[in-house]
Design a protein around this nucleic acid. Structure first.
Lengths: 135, 135
DNA sequence: TAACTAAATTAGAATAATTCTAAAAGAGGA
DNA sequence: TCCTCTTTTAGAATTATTCTAATTTAGTTA
């Protein structure tokens, strides 16, 4: 992903292409670690923590990034959301796995029927344990 | 739900049946409001906020209650989880709707295949907007 | 290319949800 | 009823996140 590609991703969504936004978006696209704001700040020390939070909020607003609440700690985790997907959380290791082998269309239709709303998005977290481990 | 029923629900899950736990569990079972700890405390002033948090944590641990992160505020919302269900969040009103018209078995199987884990639970939030409202 | 302006960035302070502490009260078994 | 371990509690502490107000910058216009 070139710098120009990243600029385009931001600008087509109405966001100014600042150094900080380009850097943070690139960071999220190239890391599978589902980092917290603080973890990003540790790696990108030249960007202030306030800007990390501001930028993440903007990226979430335009749909490039989503927030994951793992329920394992009190921090928000962030994930590049180029393609819609769901998360599998290993309760033994707290690892977050991305997966997309599931068609959400039937779930969307069920939600539309239940609520009458126009469905705009989803967050799915599936929890599991290692088969070896005693539960 | 009688007091004795509530006691049994707690004791069969290894929790002592204290007045506070019975009261909070009953509160969650009889309110569809998906309250925060603070909202519960406003209604149950005789129970300290620390105990509200402690009790909710225990109830979540034993699976009677789940946490919903609406992403609309910075507070955790709690929901009695007698029957597994998913949530539909209205982005216009921030209302949380319970729904269970969807079979999660195929999703569990997909998650098992993707991760190799034994699946133990799920959290699903579907976001939508009123059809009338301009998006 | 220089000037302009609204938006973005920043350091540090402020906020507030949640957790911690340690002392008092209570549940359930003997 | 007694005993022991668990639970409850008030208030302090923690800390993730937000706010503030001054500075800088991106993108546009001349």
């Amino acid at each position: 992903m070139t710098d120009q590609n990243l600029r385009d991703m931001l600008q087509t969504r109405g966001l100014k292409a600042t150094f900080q936004r380009i850097t943070i978006l690139d960071y999220l696209m190239t890391h599978e670690t589902h980092p917290t704001a603080d973890m990003i700040h540790l790696d990108l020390k030249e960007i202030s923590l306030a800007t990390i939070y501001n930028t993440l909020e903007k990226l979430v607003d335009v749909g490039l990034v989503i927030v994951i609440d793992t329920q394992k700690d009190d921090k928000r985790h962030y994930d590049y959301y180029g393609e819609p997907h769901y998360h599998i959380i290993n309760n033994n290791t707290n690892e977050i796995i991305d997966a997309d082998n599931f068609d959400v269309a039937p779930l969307f239709e069920a939600a539309r029927q239940a609520s009458g709303l126009n469905i705009t998005g989803f967050h799915i977290e599936i929890y599991g344990v290692d088969p070896d481990e005693a539960k």
